[in-house]
Design a protein around this nucleic acid. Sequence first.
DNA 1: GTCGCTTGCCAC
DNA 2: AAACGTGGCAAGCGAC
Length: 580
Amino acid sequence: MSSSPAGIPDDVSMHLVECWDDAADFRRWLGERRPVLAVDTETSGMEWWDGDLRLVQFGDAMSGWAIPFEPWKGLIRESLKDYEGPLVFHNAKFDLHWLETNGAFPRRHRVNDTAVMAHLVSPDQRVGLKECSARWLDARAATGQSELKKAMSKAQWTWGTIPIDFEGYWVYAALDVVLTARLYEHLVPQVRADFGRVYDLEMACSHILMDMETRGVRVDLSYCQEQYEKLHAYSVEARAWCKNTYGFEAGSNRNVAAQLMGDGVVLTKRTDRGAWSMTEEVLSGIEHPLAQTVLSIRKSEKLANSYFANFIEMADGDLLHPSVRPLGARTGRMSVTNPALQTLPRGRLVRDAFIAREGHLMVGADYEQVEMRLAAHFSEDEGLIEAFKSEGDFFTVMGRSIFDDPTFEKSDPRRSLVKNGMYAKVYGSGTARFAETVGIPEHEAQTFMLKLDQSFPGLRTFADSVGRTAAMRGVREGTEYIRTPTGRRLVAPEGRSYALVNAAIQGTAADIFKQAIVKLDAAGLGEYLVMPVHDELILSVPEELVPEVEAGLVEVMERDDFLVPLAVDSHHGVRWGSLK
DNA sequence: GTCGCTTGCCAC
DNA sequence: AAACGTGGCAAGCGAC
């Protein structure tokens, strides 16, 4: 069956495999020579471990083939196994999950990813197939999708139930591979020329993370249940008290503010849109039973719902399959969702929900103050570099030199000023914000920042040089950007070029972290990975191998090729929470 | 009922 | 001259 309905370029042919003749035609087509074979899947949803693979599409710049998986799984498996040429997916990790869990194994070392390419070229833009096609191929690329959405809602179809032979479904599915193939041909010259090294890093890392997602994270469901019930019981009781006493929901900030003011509380801070601000910071300063109750309700509901209930809800048996986006942030950092395991509260309560596999222990290995060390590296500042090379606590050594006081010890109250001041530098904050976070008057903050700059002049030099480079490129190329040592491109957010100082540090830390993941996989430790957390790796390791693996991790992760050593600390325990 | 926005809060 | 960076998630709430 061939077709070319509205919105599809005339020179493109679309095919749906429905009979053996179609299958034979597909195999003949597959045997032709082409620069790249694009592959995509349509599925019943997002949960690849518990859902149906419905359609697999193959295509190149001129043809798209949609093949229903269930009746043609043999054809699809054989075709993917046999195909030796370059492959391209748009967001390969997602499709590979579906294909592999359904017994179809494309050659991974041949896999390319246009979403990765797009992110490297334009790290500040959305990298959906539609957006990329509209940006680089044809502004009308997304037109078919809205028609399909309308038809689906009219007939009450979901992605799991829409008939596979409904033309608006399979034709646009087949168009997606054509777009992917064209995107690849458009982007690959630039990616090869400008981003070869970081692209290879991203692809290697992506496969390791995919296998990590497949293995999943083991969760202690009865612990979650127990904690949830305790917290939930409290919040039900506290909400009822609030309703009975004041007549409104504790979650309604508008009503809470009105009640507090009615009871004589003076509010001064407002939100961006002009409402009375009811943040933790504001409420904790108010001595009123309502303020305190609202705070504890928020706290316990956050714990109960965002964490424990969420874990129970998402579990596949006793496993969670969090989804990692290797290029989640514009800086090259990863992000994690379902659940967001990178934002678990510190301390034992929530982290203890995650346990090692049977016969295993949890192992954690983290880069110590990696961003501070990179700040020292990029600044080339003798004093900062010395502070990291000398024995003892970095911020204490810095404190001695800033205040010219050899008696400055780790317990010195000024240490937090030093630490916060350095973070303010690294994040690019101004003196006003810095003064607020450390709780000192602005003129004191100013004096301190001046002292910091004088003690470590490299910090300014570094910031200036980032600014100059970005500004120069802004003029010459129209975009303010810098590159990390691996070639990753970092683009300044609109009107905030100062953020590039932080981006350089954060982006380089991301590169280092990803290189560590690739190296540890090469060293045979990849199979133990559980979760990456920005500068810390969480693993589940067979008990008897723990000492060996910890030594291996330190060996693989630590680096000496920067101006300061990058040090790694490791721990082990039964639960995530027991890693110090 | 769903959707998107706002507000608030968790991490590194 | 001055500018705290990067994310995800849930509840409330108004619009459709």
